[in-house]
Design a protein around this nucleic acid. Structure first.
Length: 234
DNA sequence: TACCAGGTCCTCG
DNA sequence: CGAGGACATGGT
């Protein structure tokens, strides 16, 4: 089964996901809504969320984001000035709070230093350069970098996460040793446009959570059941 | 109770 | 390089 067919099947089942959830003007929490274009503030919120959601459920991350907003800390300058312990306390719900407080500061300091705090200028760069710069920041690994490129900078990039790995290894019946090996597998197999890549990744997440679970207890009603190598073997 | 959740860094071989 | 440990909360 081609990746494009996986996409079509999941899309017809779940519909558009409209990622990444962000807070609208005057709102108090991130929501999934259709939006034409992100404001600079929203791009920053997506960036922070990308870091906070590392190995953590989105539900917990929302609490952290709400906490940060209450203290007016969803901005470059705010994070730079804030005491690390204060940040850690606010983002505690999303786990690894001390580490992630550092990561947020690293990101903010980088944008401040290299782009005078203008997140928009940073995200205007071409994908290749942007990715390199993101990866140079301690706390931003490959997945977080791709995530920011796709959902904050709104440029084409394929995000590989634990869900993607699990799904693909089951469907295709082969192991992918590294992040890049899995990413390379998809090269040339689907359109390289933002909308498609945005929805594809989001759909894979929803699919993994609802059907392709770790304990494979939900295989029974799986929409990709018949074309899954894992299922065929069992 | 244990296990998992939209990873990354560091160290060691 | 790639494996293995640290990080260290909240939900089920």
């Amino acid at each position: 089964m081609q990746p494009i067919k996986i996409y079509k099947t999941l899309y017809s089942l779940f519909g558009p996901q409209n990622w990444w959830p962000v807070t609208d003007k005057g709102g108090t929490k991130p929501t999934y809504r259709k939006r034409k274009r992100l404001t600079e503030k929203q791009k920053l919120e997506v960036s922070f969320g990308s870091i906070l959601t590392q190995n953590t459920s989105w539900r917990s991350v929302m609490l952290s984001i709400e906490n940060l907003r209450k203290e007016n800390l969803l901005g470059i300058d705010g994070i730079i000035k804030a005491n690390p312990k204060k940040i850690a306390k606010l983002i505690r719900p999303s786990n690894y709070q001390n580490q992630k407080a550092r990561y947020l500061k690293n990101f903010a300091k980088y944008v401040k230093k290299k782009y005078n705090g203008k997140t928009n200028d940073f995200f205007k760069k071409n994908v290749s350069d942007l990715r390199k710069e993101l990866l140079s920041i301690k706390g931003i690994g490959q997945e977080t970098a791709d995530n920011m490129i796709l959902y904050a900078a709104e440029k084409p990039s394929f995000v590989v996460d634990a869900y993607t790995k699990r799904i693909m290894e089951r469907i295709y019946g082969e192991k992918f040793k590294s992040y890049n090996e899995l990413k390379d597998f998809f090269v040339g197999k689907f359109p390289q446009n933002v909308k498609f890549m945005n929805e594809f990744h989001a759909l894979l997440v929803v699919f993994a959570q609802q059907y392709c679970t770790k304990n494979n207890q939900k295989c029974r009603n799986c929409p990709l059941h018949s074309e899954c190598a894992f299922h065929s073997r069992n």
